[in-house]
Computed example of a mutant assay.
Amino acid sequence: MNPLARIHGGPDAQGAPRYDFSSNSNACGPCPQVLAAVQAADATRYPDAAYTDLRAALARFHGVPPWRVVLAGSASEFIFRITAWVKGQGTQQAPRTVCLPRHAYGDYAHAAQAWGLQSMATPDAADLVWACEPSSPLGQAHTTWPAWVHHATDGALHNSPIAREPLCNIVVLDSAYAPLRLGGRPSLSNAQRKRVWQLFSPNKALGLTGVRASFTIAPAGAQQAAAQLDALAPSWVLGAHGVALLMAWTQADTQAWLHSSLQTLRGWKQRQVLALQALGWTVQPSDTPFFCAQPPRGMDAVAMCAQLRTQGVKLRDATSFGLPGWVRLGVLPPQAQDALGAALSTTANKGQA
């Protein structure tokens, strides 16, 4: 088995880029009040091993009972944990299967490969179905749902696989970018979302991606599975700083800051898209403060990214997402956009020389 390459945006062996378009973090951040909470966290003590107050706060925030809150060290940690759990539901005679989005975060596939899940092209036949909405790298709606998801209503729990345990054909909706939605509408209703696992990692929306902390809202009726996934986690899966971030996430002033930042990001995004289009780039539509774009014909995207990196500007080559020739760009403030434009002009001039 050949391991998949782990390719991510953000800092690399060259350090932190001055202008980092390769990350999907909220460029308005960090959220001041959450940063203050993280900095004030008491790192001299263990957190409460049961995370009683945190579970209660997240449950109130989402309007669910505390048992539905499954804490995780990060979204990536939960991706690997639930994949391992699904694997454990199978037998040698019936290996477990997974359905992945066509273009998606690499850890879904990494976890599936590590635990030996077989890939399926259609979601209805898979034991584990990954969805991400808005998606990465495209920032668009997810389109390939199992048929039962669309039939789920508040009064039709019996139509959903979650009504019988152990679970089969479970769906995990990665909602990492839902708080950063700038447009569009969710594909699933509230009733339909109650039938799937909803994975949240607020550090992106808060501009604090270095703090690793995540949680999942389990489906209604999946109490046994939620308990099993809790049991698979190590003790103190979250440290003091992760607890502080998630607790602050539930506060009204944090949500007000986030709401205000979205308006700023809309303006920055429009400016960034127009600037790239003026340079001959093709930009795909997205509902998020990140999008995919293709440089003008004749410009090699991989070579361009390498050249820009030497100038302190980093873009995310989208080849690993299954989009060769494209890059993903997070939306940054006007100063960074101007630096990108200048670097692109320099790179283009060098290519013509």
Rank of each mutant, 00 (worst) to 15 (best):
P3F: 12
A5G: 10
R6G: 01
H8N: 06
A16Q: 14
D20Q: 07
S25F: 05
S25E: 13
A27R: 03
Q33V: 04
D42K: 14
P47T: 14
Y51Q: 02
Y51N: 01
D53F: 09
A56S: 12
L58M: 07
F61V: 00
V64I: 12
V69K: 14
L71R: 11
A72G: 14
A75T: 00
F78K: 03
F80Q: 07
A84H: 15
Q89M: 13
P95K: 11
T97F: 11
T97S: 15
C99Y: 10
R102V: 15
Y108V: 07
L117I: 12
L128F: 12
P137K: 03
L138G: 01
H150F: 14
H150E: 12
A156M: 09
N159D: 15
R164V: 15
R164T: 15
R164H: 15
N169E: 13
S175R: 08
Y177D: 05
P186H: 08
P186E: 04
S187K: 11
L188D: 02
V196K: 11
S201H: 07
N203M: 13
R212N: 05
S214L: 09
P219S: 10
P219T: 09
A226E: 03
Q228S: 15
D230Y: 03
L232W: 04
M247W: 13
T250Q: 08
L274I: 03
A275F: 05
T282W: 13
P285F: 12
F290A: 03
F290V: 00
F291T: 02
D300T: 04
Q307G: 01
R309G: 02
V313S: 10
L315V: 03
R316I: 00
V331W: 08
P333H: 10
G351R: 10
G351P: 05
